[in-house]
Design a protein around this nucleic acid. Sequence first.
DNA 1: CACTAAGCGAGACGGTACGTCACGTCTTTCC
DNA 2: GGAAAGACGTGACGTACCGTCTCGCTTAGTG
Lengths: 209, 209, 209, 209
Amino acid sequence: MAPTKTPDSSRRSDRSRRAIHDAALALVTEVGYQRTTIEGIAARAGVGKQTIYRWWPSKAAVLMDAFLDLAGRAAEEVGAGPGETAPGIPDTGDLAADLKLVLRATVDELNDPTLEAPTRALTAEGVVDAKLGAEFVHKLLDPQLALYVTRLRAAQEAGDVRADVDPRIALELLIGPLMHRWLLRTLPLTHAYADEIVDYAIGGLAPRT
Amino acid sequence: MAPTKTPDSSRRSDRSRRAIHDAALALVTEVGYQRTTIEGIAARAGVGKQTIYRWWPSKAAVLMDAFLDLAGRAAEEVGAGPGETAPGIPDTGDLAADLKLVLRATVDELNDPTLEAPTRALTAEGVVDAKLGAEFVHKLLDPQLALYVTRLRAAQEAGDVRADVDPRIALELLIGPLMHRWLLRTLPLTHAYADEIVDYAIGGLAPRT
Amino acid sequence: MAPTKTPDSSRRSDRSRRAIHDAALALVTEVGYQRTTIEGIAARAGVGKQTIYRWWPSKAAVLMDAFLDLAGRAAEEVGAGPGETAPGIPDTGDLAADLKLVLRATVDELNDPTLEAPTRALTAEGVVDAKLGAEFVHKLLDPQLALYVTRLRAAQEAGDVRADVDPRIALELLIGPLMHRWLLRTLPLTHAYADEIVDYAIGGLAPRT
Amino acid sequence: MAPTKTPDSSRRSDRSRRAIHDAALALVTEVGYQRTTIEGIAARAGVGKQTIYRWWPSKAAVLMDAFLDLAGRAAEEVGAGPGETAPGIPDTGDLAADLKLVLRATVDELNDPTLEAPTRALTAEGVVDAKLGAEFVHKLLDPQLALYVTRLRAAQEAGDVRADVDPRIALELLIGPLMHRWLLRTLPLTHAYADEIVDYAIGGLAPRT
DNA sequence: CACTAAGCGAGACGGTACGTCACGTCTTTCC
DNA sequence: GGAAAGACGTGACGTACCGTCTCGCTTAGTG
C-alpha cells in the first residue's frame, strides 16, 4: 500500500539470517563489539552487506536478534520442547532457598564465557542508547524479572514477605547488587555472593516479628 | 626508561588541555558519545589532533580525564577550598537518615543533565573495556564507596548493623538497585525510591532483635 | 590469480574517471604539482578519496593517465576520427623542411600553457622516479620519437643522411637541445631556434661531399 | 637597521652547517628526495629544526647548498688548491678531441652514484620550480657551460667553426643530447655516445668546404 | 512454462573519521 | 643570541567502514 520499500519477509533467506547471527556473535566474542563491523559480519557470513541493511537498522539490532536467537535456542535445550512454557521460579515454600537457586543460575549465566561478550555489548549499548536500552529491557530483562515478581507475590500471600513491599523494588534489591558487581567488575561474582545478597534482602522484606 | 617516545609533560600546554576537556564534555552532552569524534573535539577546542593523540590513548581516556577534572572542580566548589578534605557521610547517629541523605544526593547527581551524558558514556565504555572500567572504578567510584564503608563500620560499632555484615556487600545492597534503575531506565529515579531502598536494606542489616 | 584485491574494472564509473582526470589537470595547472593533493583532486572531482586510491597507485599515476587521456583526445581532434592512424612526419623530399615543421610543432606544444604544467610535472617526477620515468617514455615519448626514426631512415635511403648514422642518436641531436632549453629555461624556445637546430644537425648528418 | 629577523651570520655554527649538508646528501641518496624531510635532516644532523629554518628557506635550498659544497670540495681535490681557478677546457688545437675529453668527463660525473641522486633531485625540482631552476642554472650550470663558450670561440678564431655559429646553440647541440638521455634514461650513457655526439655536432659546426 | 520480480552475493561509490607524518612557528633552556 | 629540543596548530596522508547504489544470478510465484 505505502510506497515504502518494505522487504517481503516471506522470501527471506533463513540461511543468511542464521549465518549473520552466528557471525555477529562470533565476532563480538572474538574481537569485541567496537571492532565488530557490518562489513566484517557480512564477510564472515558470506553475505552481501545489503542483506544486513535490508533486515536490520543497526549493528546493535543485529546483535540483539542474534542474542535473542541464542537465548531462545538455549531455553529450548533446557525445556522439553519449543512449545514449552518458561520454567519459572520454583516454589518449595522456602523463599530464601528458591531465590538463591535462581540467583545462582543468573550468576552462572553472567559468568558463561559464551554469553559474556554479547551481553556486555548490548547492555553497554543500551546504557547510552535509550531506544535500544528499552528494547533490551523489554525483550530480555522483563520476561525474566516477571518471574521474580510472581514468586514474590506468592511469598507475600504466604506471609513470608510483608504485604506493603513493592515486588518491583524487592527484585531490584536482589538483582541490583549482582548487576552492579558484574558490570563494574569490582569483585568476583560467586554463588556465595548470591546467597549473601538473598540473606540480606530477605531480612529487609520479611515481616517484622 | 621505557623506550617509547614519552612527551615532556612539563612543556604541556595547559590551555589546550582545558580546551580539550571542555570540548569533549560539551560534545558528549550535545551529540552523544558515539558521534563524538577526536577530530570534532580537536576542531572545537581549536587544537591539533596530534595534541590529543600525544597525551591520551583513546577518546574514552580523554573523556575520563575531562570528567575527573569536572568532578574535581565541582568538589572544590562544595568544599571551602582546594585543600579541603572530602565531605564524607555525616554521622548523626541515625543511620537510615544519614544514608538517605547521601543516596538522595547520588540520585540528584545521576539526574543532573550536565553529568548524565558523560557518566553514561564512561560507564558503558567501562562495561565493555575492562581496562577502562577498572580505571573508572578506581578513580571515580572507589573513593565514593569508601565513604559508605566508613559510615557502615561506625554503624557496626554503634550496634546499628550486625557485626558479621561485610560492609562492601552492604553498600552494594544500597548502590546496586539505584544503579540498576538508572542504567536500564526501568523506572524513574526519585528521592522516594532512595528512601525505600535504604529502609529495605537497613532491615536486612540491622541486628535481629 | 594474484592474491591482491584487484578491483573489478568492468564496474568502474566512467563519470568518476573523467572527473578525476579533469580535476587533476586543472589543479596542476592552477596551483602546481607539489600543491596538488589527492584530497584536493577528490574534492574537486566530487569523488571519494578511495575511488582514486582504488584505481591509481600515486598522484603521479593519476596525472599520467589524465595526460594520456588529454593527449588522446587532442589527437582525435586533429585526426579525422578515433580509428585514424597517427599523422606521422611528412616526407616532401626536403628533409630539413620536414624536420623544421615537426620541431616547430613540438616547440608550440611545449609552449602551450595548457600542457606545460602537467608535462613539466610528469617529466620532473620521471627524472627522480625511474619506474614512472620509464612509463612516461614508453607511453608518451617513444611513439613520437618512432616517427622521427621512420623519417630519418627514409632520408638515409634517399641519400640525404649518411648510411652509418644511427637514427636514434640523430633524433637526440634534434630533440635534446630543444628539451634542454625547455627544461632548464635557459633561453626562450622559438621557431627560429628549432630551425637553427635542424640546420646544424643536418650538417652533421648529411653525406660529406 | 630594518626590524626583520636577519640572523647574524658571523655567529653561525659551522659545525651545524656541515652536519646539515652531510645529512641532506646522505638522505637524498639513501631514501630519495621526496622521502627526505627537514625533520629527518635535523635528526640525522643532530640539530634543531629551527637551525635549518633559520638559514634556508626550503628543503631544495638546503640540498642546493649541500651540493655546491660537495662540488666545491670535489673541485679542490682536482685543482691544486682552494684559490685555484677552474680547470677549463684544454685547447690542443684538435677541437673534436678536446670536446670528447670534456664530454666524457661529464658522462662520468652523471654516472657517479654519489652525485646522481642529488643532481636528479635538484634538476627535477628546477624543472617544476622556475625560481629554483634559475638558481640551479646560474650557480651550477652556467659556470661550466661558459667554458664551452670560451673553447668554441677559440675554435671560431682558429677557423674550425663557422663564424656565424652561435656558441650558446653549439654547446646545446653537445650537452642537450647527453642530458636528454640521462634525464629520460632512454639508453645507457657511455663514452662512445659522447664521442658520437661530438662527431655529429662538429659536422654541423665546421665550415662548409 | 516462460516471465517477471524480489532476495541475494558482490562490490564500487561518495563520504567521514581514523591515527600518523611532516610542515613551519614558537617557546624553553642551555651555552 | 645562536642552538638543541620539542610542543603546537595545520593539513595531507593512506586505510577502514559507513550506508547507498547498481550489477548479474538465483529462485519463487504468476499469467
